[in-house]
Design a protein around this nucleic acid. Structure first.
Lengths: 229, 229
DNA sequence: TACATTTTTAACCGCCGGGTTCAATTAACT
DNA sequence: AGTTAATTGAACCCGGCGGTTAAAAATGTA
């Protein structure tokens, strides 16, 4: 006994195999969508075979839904690592916004999966009842900031936490989701480092400005353009 | 001669047939994407047959590209009907924003086609060189407002027309594109009439606030919440 | 040893769906 | 009348791809 630690050579490790499949499947589904993805292409990317994909996931759609759920959980998990306790509400909101902007940029596969879900009218996401709790928490973060901001007399009285979350999502999401068409139509300048920094600053200014009771504080909170004098 | 006006019974009308195909194809591609759409489904919706689809459009991809180009031209054409001449720059910007917000809402098929193009990394849109001019004009509208606003001393000096157009697009696009997942995750409230009015107002406030040199004018330009006192 | 689970290989099935063929009919233009 | 373009219908082809079968070997467990 006590040989648990040894002989972890390789074989007979269902979890690792499933994880391997999910990893490749995520990339593939994110790249080409549900109907666009070929199971054989997924298999080709894994260390295992097409056969094992159907062994662990009954069919294509089940696999897709497993990918979606895992990815969603992972991303929402990443979000919850942000700690805003103790910050002044306006500073906290700014931090949340910048974090979300960056976070979405770092997770293009997640963004693409959500785009694909929207094409499908969220048909598959609707089944995932485990997401409800995570979504509540996401709104909860914004809600606490809103309440604190109102109580501190910093924020307007009429702001809605869900609408605020919508605003934050809109810019952060669009920035990644529409990069291809936008840069094709209007040039790639906004998507290099300088352009992204500009958009991030502008987005923060915009949203903070619509929330603050006294927008003249904006310049103090977020310097307009740190580069040019 | 002079029997042009008569006997427009029906037959021998290639343009009408092509238009019929394009109309159905647009709806179908917007609904299910390029790989998700079945040519037979398109044919079923037209007054003609699958045979004629291949007669006029060589293959699926060509048809898809024709749909995309036509839809894009139509939408950009609709945009150009907006006349902002003679308005004060801040008022003009507000009007442009509200127009774009409404316009995107009225054209969900266009939005979905753009989403699909983004999934494809804009592969097909890149081929459409005819769009360049239309895009220039779209930016031109924003640019003129920006210049006028700066000259009038109303707008900040550091705003970029392209970035401003990005902001306007972001909220207007996201509002339609992500409606399915957002309302699944966070409730449908923002998408009824009242919710949409709120988002529209909030978006205008946000973007104007990030552009105006003196954001304290915001309340005058856009009343916070006309409903509640 | 006996038994269940995991893994591998490779061939195979069946149908869906993009695209074609063919043959015939009808309109329009001269 | 003769020619060309438009239109129709239905059968057909065939490759791709989702999903299966079958059989066996390796591993783990007791």
């Amino acid at each position: 006994m006590e040989d648990r630690e040894k002989s972890r050579k390789w074989k007979q490790n269902p979890e690792a195999v499933k994880a391997d499949i999910l990893r490749v499947a995520r990339a593939e589904f994110a790249k080409t969508g549900l109907s666009g993805t070929r199971i054989e292409d997924i298999a080709a990317g894994t260390k295992t075979s097409k056969r094992m994909i159907f062994y662990y996931f009954q069919d294509k759609q089940t696999l897709y839904e497993a990918v979606l759920e895992e990815c969603y959980a992972e991303v929402r998990g990443g979000e919850s690592e942000l700690d805003l306790e103790g910050l002044r509400p306006d500073v906290a909101l700014k931090a949340l916004l910048e974090f979300t902007f960056d976070h979405h940029r770092r997770n293009p596969e997640f963004i693409r999966l959500v785009m694909i879900e929207n094409i499908h009218e969220a048909r598959h996401m609707k089944k995932m009842h485990a997401l409800a709790a995570k979504n509540e928490r996401a709104i909860g973060v914004v809600e606490r900031i809103c309440n604190a901001g109102r109580e501190a007399g910093l924020f307007r009285e009429d702001i809605s936490p869900v609408a605020l979350h919508w605003q934050i999502s809109a810019v952060s999401f669009f920035n990644v989701a529409n990069r291809a068409t936008f840069s094709t139509n209007f040039g790639p300048e906004l998507f290099d480092e300088a352009g992204q920094a500009l958009l991030r600053r502008t987005s923060v200014r915009g949203i903070l400005g619509s929330v603050l009771k006294d927008p003249s504080q904006l310049d103090a909170l977020c310097p307009a353009d740190p580069a040019q004098p």
